[in-house]
Amino acid sequence: MTSERDLVKIVVIIVAVLGLVSPVLALDLPGGFAFLRDIDPTIIQDIRYAGANNFMGRPIAGYGAAECVVKREVGLRLKAVQQELARQKLSLKMFDCYRPVRAVADMVAWSKNGTETAAERRYNPAFSKADLFRLGYIATHSGHSTGAAVDLTLVDLTADNSLKFDPAKDYADCTAPVAVRAPEGSVDMGTGYDCSDAKGHTAASAITPAQKRWRARLVAAMAEQGFANYSKEWWHFSLPGAAGPAYDFPIGRAR
């Protein structure tokens, strides 16, 4: 029979082991940065570059956890946006936040690897991935690396958002109707996230009136808190004045 003293020893050992493991799994952030979930846990997170549901089809360098990390000021403003949206039964959904410099380098190397799969072409159906940087769809020096830029969309909390991405399914490209492209559990903005195409430009004309209204609603909600949209990506917003140096610390899980 295990004595009370033995049980105490076991507990001490477990605590000690967890103390050794947690620095590997968790992350101490540089000053000024914060986990968005610590600021507002109601904001939905779907951090694409931490998994396989993205234009590279695999986790991208530096994304050790599916966590949104931002400058604290950015997070507080996102919280204010979320509070206003909640009154309309809507929510923000984060696709990408802080992006390590090593992730950008990974993207550059991927664009030059000389191969292109059908799954990759879903994100840039009109041209080769080698042209993504030249055409301004991916930056070699990303504002995301400063913690002041985010990629996001809107979720209608009254809708059925249960459809999930299936990596084994052959989806249509990102410009196709919402019923046949990869599901995102969000409102229909006219294209999928990270769609490198003219149809993904915020002011694109080749989308429906309803899709235009959703984009305008997102831009207006973000502008209320000072965020500026990037014209070639309806999902990309930055906070002027919040950017600083680019960082390369890896993304780990929140403590």
Rank of each mutant, 00 (worst) to 15 (best):
T2S: 10
T2K: 13
E4A: 15
L7K: 14
I14F: 14
V15R: 01
V15S: 07
V15A: 08
V17I: 15
G19C: 04
V21H: 12
S22P: 02
P23G: 05
P23D: 07
L27P: 01
G31L: 06
G31T: 05
F33P: 03
F35Q: 09
D40N: 14
I47D: 07
R48C: 02
Y49R: 13
F55C: 13
G57K: 04
I60E: 09
C68M: 05
G75A: 12
L76Q: 13
Q82S: 12
Q83C: 02
Q83I: 03
A86M: 07
Q88I: 06
L90W: 05
L92I: 11
K93H: 09
C97E: 01
C97A: 14
D106P: 01
V108S: 05
A109N: 10
S111D: 10
K112E: 15
N113Y: 06
E116R: 03
A118G: 09
P125W: 08
A126V: 09
K129S: 03
F133P: 05
G136V: 08
A139M: 02
T140K: 14
T140M: 02
H141T: 11
G143I: 00
H144E: 06
V150M: 07
T153N: 12
A159V: 06
D160K: 05
N161C: 02
K164G: 03
D166V: 12
D166Q: 12
A172N: 05
T175Y: 03
T175H: 01
P177L: 05
V180E: 02
V180L: 02
V180D: 01
R181L: 07
G185F: 04
G185I: 09
G185S: 09
G185R: 01
V187C: 10
M189Q: 03
G192I: 07
S196N: 13
A198F: 08
K199N: 13
G200F: 05
A204V: 05
A206F: 01
A206Y: 02
A206L: 06
T208Q: 02
A210Y: 03
R213I: 10
A216H: 06
L218P: 01
E224H: 07
Q225S: 09
Q225W: 00
N229V: 10
N229I: 11
S238T: 10
L239I: 12
P240Y: 13
D248R: 08
P250D: 06
P250S: 05
A254V: 12
